[in-house]
Nucleic acid binder design. Structure first.
Lengths: 194, 194
DNA sequence: TGGTTAAATAAACACCATTCATTTTGGTGG
DNA sequence: CCACCAAAATGAATGGTGTTTATTTAACCA
């Protein structure tokens, strides 16, 4: 063909993103090839490269959406929880639950690396910080005496730990220890901090 | 060629593993293609497939070696440290140091997944448990009252946390928080448990 | 020396990301 | 109404990947 003008560039981009996300969920990163995405939206590979500079750009967009989804899940979970200790516990559990419920999106989000020179877009960084802020605010509640720097350290240490549980839960690499109750594990980790 | 009989099967296997490890360290997972490994040892791809069932088998062997290296690094670090609290602190720091010093081997070790049906070899599982045991023994020192199950939970929670710091340190994904002193972060995490 | 057989190769298949010359076609000016 | 232009889309090509297999080579043995 050539020039059919059925969809605008922006429409095509949205179609591609939606199709890619579906492929990612169903088949993982490997199933999310440019060829498959292109054919899923009824176009050829060449056209896909007019919508995205390359595959990395498509992946970055997918990760932006995943980061949003994580943030939303956590925020909704603790939105109306008055007790900050309980809120942190619930947020940690929700974080791990997300990793387990959406393993392929999670893997792309945390395992995909841009080539040497490329920078992670600021938008994506801000999305992570936003999630982070959610926890920091609650931790501040619990540690009224801590200054900004202490609080930052505390939050980072706590959430790195929670992230670790999520990573291991997602990869089943915890079968070393025989423990399969990730909720209990999470609670213990959070409890160590509050 | 054909039948040169320069090296035994086992020799070729060792050569291939060594070459693959070098390629992995230098160029990462992507640089560790079967073609590159084969040409690095002066054979063709076909021959490599007589030494390894497939690429996954080669990767599993590389990971076995990486797991050994991590274990050795930790054991040497805390071998003669009498104070268990200090030993755990040092072990955690050594774990993170390894992740930062050997990013490509680390990534293969924790990001490589076998296809659906395949099982991780028992040898590799045992190597992880061995590392785990190193920590559990020290933690037992510090928590004399804990029963086996509690101890296991405690160890798993602690080391999942340490693993999380290692993951994030290795990927620089902690630039969200501005904290770049991973040692300090590790200490704080460990301190929360002991 | 000739035959057998193990060892190694080379070529093939089916994918992959990426690029770009070529074709198609909608829209516009005459 | 038609011819032209430029945008849109294609399809083929390049060089890479893992994996399989028919074929060739050479070492050894009778």
């Amino acid at each position: 063909m050539g020039r059919r003008n059925e969809h605008s560039r922006e429409q095509q981009r949205e179609m591609a993103i939606a199709a890619a996300e579906l492929l990612l969920i169903r088949e993982g990163m490997a199933g999310c090839s440019m060829r498959k995405v292109a054919s899923a939206i009824g176009y050829t590979v060449g056209q896909l490269y007019l919508l995205f500079k390359n595959q990395d750009e498509l992946f970055v967009v997918l990760n932006e959406r995943s980061a949003d989804a994580v943030y939303t899940a956590l925020r909704d979970e603790i939105d109306e929880v008055p007790d900050s200790a309980e809120a942190i516990r619930l947020a940690a559990r929700a974080y791990i639950a997300f990793a387990r419920r959406h393993p392929n999106r999670w893997r792309l989000l945390f395992e995909h690396r841009l080539p040497e020179g490329a920078e992670v877009p600021k938008a994506n960084l801000r999305k992570v910080q936003r999630l982070f802020g959610l926890i920091e605010a609650r931790l501040q509640d619990l540690l009224p005496g801590a200054d900004a720097q202490e609080l930052r350290l505390e939050t980072t240490a706590l959430w790195s730990g929670v992230h670790g549980v999520a990573v291991l839960a997602q990869t089943n690499k915890l079968n070393w220890s025989g423990i399969d109750d990730y909720g209990l594990l999470t609670d213990r980790l959070v409890q160590a901090f509050i």
